[in-house]
Design a binder for these strands. Structure first.
Lengths: 199, 199, 199, 199
DNA sequence: AATGAATGAGCATTCATTCAT
DNA sequence: CATGAATGAATGCTCATTCAT
């Protein structure tokens, strides 16, 4: 709390954050014990309180870190928006890959910030909003069906991202690139075979 | 502990289950306190242990109830499979509606069984499996692209179902029918406009 | 806290109050440990919280009990006021004896309420006020010097009462009656010998 | 630990003593935290232990300082004894004023040494003893009633001094001179009006 | 069928104090 | 002379659970 200056202190702090992230991601907030966190970080209990006010406080700091990560992601998606418009598929693919990449960067943090945190819903709504706006822009350019409600599409995307992240990304079964490809493959072309496309 | 005969006992049991479902769904397993559950049900703490061995036990009983519900759903989806094959879109739509219907039936239970329960993953895998098999059958009949990996599709479906359920169904914002329609609309026809469909 | 009805519970509560009073009076608020209190009362720690919300809470309840005692004393002093006016000395003597009697009734409580409680000052001010009013009434009747500032007198009385209580009453060295007599003897006649009384 | 020579060290020591006195006087021994004391003095915690062995140690040093002050007071009262015996009232007045003066000199210290310190009783007893001896000497010279038990009188005086100090002197409401006057006025002449003085 | 009373086990947090620099 | 970093030792409190009635 008191923003100690020393390099060693900063390192200890980080060690605690790392340990806490791991512990929280495995046990959840309540079952994660401070005693385990400090043990993992190689400290005794009081040291914990040298750097964090409470168990709640360190949890929230982790959440904030994750928030920060997601905000940067969001911004990158917005930026990306203005650039090359050549190939929609490529664009969507790259956006999705960014998302999965971001979520894969620190798996413990993702677990906490995306799945354990009860306030994650808002964050997902924010992310959905950006996706929606990107999609709508492209829709206006004629790249997507004009009847699609892009808000719904964005929400569905979030759902897929959530689930695939939990099931395949965090478990290490699949990588960001292939997950992005799969989603794009499904969404862009739909499920009906070419001929049956009677709209 | 188990099969007390009395009618009144059976009713008390149910009252406790109901109260527990509500409490768990609101606070999660750890923050749900036995003391609150019994208060909600109008009992004192020891009565709880007259009907359930432990907090874990009642939670698991609720999970089992939900499991049962999901199993019936799964079976209905399988049965449906053999029937009319005339219109895929209708088939998929009706299947999805069944799913959302099932999840909407008892919201507290769904929250617990589908979101809080750490073992829900297996259940979702099972559900994904059925969806996949149905989809593959229809794929073989030529109703869907032959290149689609139906396992992935099923997983994506699960993701969408999960998220839409959490965000719109359990909150009462949307109903099963419209959610099913939205998903179908997106998946079946994909996002690209008709002309652009150059595969 | 929950005002359990049973007779046994009420008794346990009292046992805890008694033990706490004793422990607080010996060690003061901070050094008194809940663990010691319950041990003294023959309970385990959680039982404490069955009857009191916190260590603070039981302390305050004791304070309140003492307050109640003092309020009754105050009222009795007021009542006494209207009665026999024959002999001032006797009146003052009896009033002081009531005060010491009250403070001697439950020594642990007195220690807590009169000496340990940081808010005791107000109580003493209240007591001083009553004494002052009684004294002023008698002053108006010509029983005391007209130049005496009875507020000061009352404060001095409080000081004597405080000190004598702490030093002699609570330690059991002297009894209420003799303490009252000593104070009266000093105050009423002053210290100067009869002849020297040149005012 | 002890006699570091440096001038700066001596100053730091004093700064700590001052800060501690203030902190103790406000919060009492237990609620006063070393961390607060050092913060107030502009140091870090380990520095504290450079000058004092423990929290207890610094408290005791403050007590000792106060003891010293009181001892000087006591001696001055004894000295005064031998001098002019012309006017008792004046003598008592001046003695009391010395006492209040002494207690007003460093209020934090007085609070600690006179009210917080559990061993203050002994000091008060010592002070009472001196007062008693002075009073008895004067009693033998015929200045006071011969029946008065001067030990009791001394104790009562201590009580008044204590209370008036706490309520009026330390709070700055009244000054040593007026407090001394009030006490003398009450004690010397007693409370009964001149005529009623029938012993 | 139900309850008043009691408890075992555990956990977060605080604070005075020390070590190495 | 001074400090950043770390710790040992307690303590208040919570909660699921049981006993006796």
């Amino acid at each position: 709390m008191k923003s100690k200056k020393g390099r060693k202190g900063e390192e200890s702090r980080k060690r605690l954050l790392k340990a806490a992230a791991n512990e929280f991601s495995i046990r959840g907030f309540h079952d994660a014990k401070v005693s385990e966190i400090v043990k993992k970080a190689g400290f005794t209990q009081p040291s914990f309180y040298l750097y964090f006010q409470s168990k709640e406080a360190i949890f929230e700091e982790l959440i904030t870190d994750f928030h920060f990560r997601v905000r940067k992601l969001t911004e990158s998606l917005l930026l990306e928006n203005g650039l090359n418009t050549e190939d929609v598929t490529k664009r969507v693919l790259s956006a999705l890959e960014s998302v999965f990449q971001c979520l894969a960067e620190d798996k413990d943090l993702t677990k906490i910030g995306f799945f354990l945190n009860p306030e994650a819903k808002q964050m997902k709504k924010d992310l959905a909003m950006v996706l929606k706006e990107n999609l709508e822009a492209e829709q206006r350019l004629g790249y997507f069906h004009s009847e699609l409600d892009m808000e719904t599409v964005a929400e569905c995307l979030i759902g897929m991202i959530e689930h695939l992240t939990d099931s395949f990304l965090l478990t290490g079964i699949k990588d960001p690139a292939s997950l992005a490809a799969e989603v794009v493959n499904l969404l862009i072309y739909g499920m009906l075979p070419k001929g049956n496309d009677v709209r």
